[in-house]
Design a protein around this nucleic acid. Structure first.
Lengths: 189, 189
DNA sequence: TATGTTACATAACATTTGTTATACAATATA
DNA sequence: TATATTGTATAACAAATGTTATGTAACATA
């Protein structure tokens, strides 16, 4: 019924994502998106009612990238996989990662209700963690989560030695996990 | 030579600080500060050349609060003191803390050059840490720092169990430190 | 007391940003 | 081919914000 669309939702989100990745989510503006697409702001308003709707789509995009990163890890150890995906996100999208950490509605909001119980069940199957009570497993999980978040933040902020590769960070994460488990085992006896 | 000042730099920074604490640093505006003081924006421009100068003073204020919190701790154990001060900051000024974590010019920028060497020297004096090489001490310190940052961030975000008091958090921090040291000792032998 | 200085209130200005009105061109359909 | 529809560019509008111009009143000094 009209002319063909020159710009799609995808292209708009792509442009917004690039801005978010380089300047931060708070610095996204309609005009910047348009400029990056080589268009006016009109196509944006054809595809989105208002900027809030666009930001909502952007959040979904960011979320899906996190899930994509997680799906690319499949060592069999869910801690390792989650840790590596988190670290990769923190390194490859450091500006975005910091935005997420700062925002209230983080992508980790539903951790306690949804993620933690699954991980606890996984831990129960792990031979290395045999003999621990559920409370002990929860303490171990909490410590590992704290460590993983701290490490990811420091990676995102560049507060770690420059020459560290992601494998070095994973080694630290694994080492800290071993520390926690080893001590839990010792203090149990 | 003119009328008495009704508003001081202190009052202006106070007002800006309250806004930063509740709405975040990015939401500070000249008019909001004036409104909170019951004045116009004129007194602000009498005391500060431009908003950048005001923000600079605000940063100093925030820094001094952090130092104040640190000075209030004097257990003799610098890790404990820094950990507790950091946790108190994260809890009592959670919005500000998140701003600091996100910003590039964090108050922890000069950690590697100034803070870490002092802590390493302290560690060398600690009987509990006797027998470790400098590299081993650095690894222990790094792990503890990672854990402390992770814990502070989770406290600031309210991602920890609601009923946790600051003493509970300090217990976790101490426990994790023990884990790291104990394992380092074991893996050394 | 008279005068110059200056802190403050008010209002205006410039810029940025989200949004919308208008005009035009492309495209499907009759 | 003629017409209605709709995507796009342009420009304008409204609100927010940093900043400044202007007037007024208070205060020190002569």
């Amino acid at each position: 019924m009209g002319p063909k669309n020159k710009f799609t939702k995808e292209q708009i989100i792509d442009a917004a994502f690039e801005i978010a990745q380089t300047e931060g989510i708070n610095n996204i503006t309609m005009r910047k998106i348009a400029e990056r697409m080589g268009s006016s702001v009109a196509p944006i308003y054809v595809n989105f009612q208002h900027i809030g709707e666009l930001m909502e789509s952007l959040k979904e995009r960011i979320l899906s990238i996190g899930q994509q990163l997680l799906s690319e890890e499949s060592s069999g150890n869910p801690f390792y996989d989650m840790g590596k995906a988190s670290l990769r996100f923190a390194i490859e999208y450091s500006v975005l990662f910091r935005d997420l950490v700062m925002s209230d509605n983080s992508y980790m909001q539903n951790y306690d209700e949804e993620v933690a119980p699954v991980l606890i069940e996984e831990m129960k199957k792990d031979p290395e963690l045999e003999g621990f009570t559920e409370d002990e497993l929860k303490t171990i999980l909490l410590k590992m989560r704290i460590f993983q978040i701290g490490l990811s933040i420091m990676a995102a902020k560049g507060s770690l030695p420059q020459n560290y590769e992601i494998q070095d960070l994973m080694d630290i994460l694994s080492s800290a996990a071993d520390d926690v488990i080893q001590s839990a085992r010792l203090n149990k006896k």
